[in-house]
């Protein structure tokens, strides 16, 4: 039996080499890993790889029509970043409702994505914004990367398509069209420090009153954050009126698959989805 190890690589390729053999647990902000490892839900593997020291894995830049967010960017940094506030207000809103000041200071975007909670606060706006994830590996001498849409990346509660030897390095978001509409709603009695009973993200473009490129994302209403595709298709290319809003809200309610737990019953979650989609669309129709 080999002793457990702790590694804190400073370069990406070193980190990827450390991940190569598998059996590694990746540590970034630690805010989820600490709780999950202590409860036994996520036992720490023989190698604990702290990726926080890797240079160049944090920060937000705009390039090639995308906003590129390094995996180690903290929620607090996102919340304060000018590019995020300007172009991704729904993500900024989600970050504002994220846990607490202390956790926003420690938790990273990459961590929130890889934790893949159905109620993950940033996942809903990211899904609505059409985000994709970038994964890196070093199977041999060279570093390889691949990208995939966030909706495909997350496959179940706490489950993603990341392979054990891969590291999520960045989130990429197409820069939303100017004049686009973004909304985020998280249900709770508090501004933050709350696990969402439901959350909603809406990204669309309103052209002469007609909705285009509608993307509605819903959190905590299914095993993974999901798109409300039936509601989206009802709204696409249409002008909002009370009847359409009512119908789309009902469609969203009917297409979610919530569970009952200590936070809310499935019935109540469906009711919230309908009422809040309706409110969000009414708000968009009046803006």
């Amino acid at each position: 039996m080999t002793a457990d190890t702790y590694l804190a690589p400073k370069r990406l390729d070193e980190a990827l080499e450390a991940l190569r053999g598998g059996e590694a647990t990746i540590l970034a902000g630690g805010t989820d890993l600490m709780v999950q490892s202590q409860s036994g839900k996520t036992p720490i593997g023989p190698k604990l790889v702290n990726i926080r020291r890797i240079a160049g894995l944090a920060g937000v830049v705009r390039a090639d029509g995308e906003i590129h967010i390094g995996a180690l960017t903290t929620i607090a940094e996102l919340l304060e970043h000018e590019l995020v506030r300007t172009h991704l207000p729904s993500l900024a809103e989600a970050c504002d409702h994220f846990a607490s000041s202390q956790i926003r200071n420690a938790g990273t975007l990459g961590g929130n994505v890889c934790n893949a909670s159905p109620a993950g606060d940033t996942l809903v706006p990211l899904l609505a914004l059409g985000a994709s994830v970038e994964l890196a590996a070093k199977p041999d001498a060279a570093v390889t990367t691949r990208a995939m849409p966030l909706g495909e990346f997350i496959v179940g509660p706490g489950k993603t398509q990341r392979k054990p030897a891969e590291l999520l390095t960045a989130i990429r978001i197409p820069v939303p069209a100017a004049g686009g509409v973004q909304r985020f709603f998280k249900f709770g009695t508090r501004p933050a420090l709350d696990i969402a009973a439901i959350s909603l993200g809406l990204v669309t473009v309103k052209e002469g009153g007609v909705l285009r490129h509608v993307r509605l994302a819903l959190g905590a209403v299914a095993p993974v954050p999901m798109r409300g595709v039936r509601a989206e298709s009802m709204l696409e290319g249409r002008r909002l009126d009370p009847a359409l809003i009512e119908a789309a809200a009902a469609a969203a309610r009917d297409e979610v698959r919530p569970i009952s737990d200590v936070r809310a019953s499935d019935w109540y979650r469906r009711e919230l989805v309908r009422n809040m989609v309706k409110r969000m669309l009414t708000d968009v129709s009046q803006s």
């Binding site: 009695t189 508090r190 501004p191 420090l193 709350d194 696990i195 200590v262 936070r263």
Partner: peptide
Amino acid sequence: RDYKLVTAPE
């Protein structure tokens, strides 16, 4: 997390 004490903003 699920037993909710009142927090300052409330």
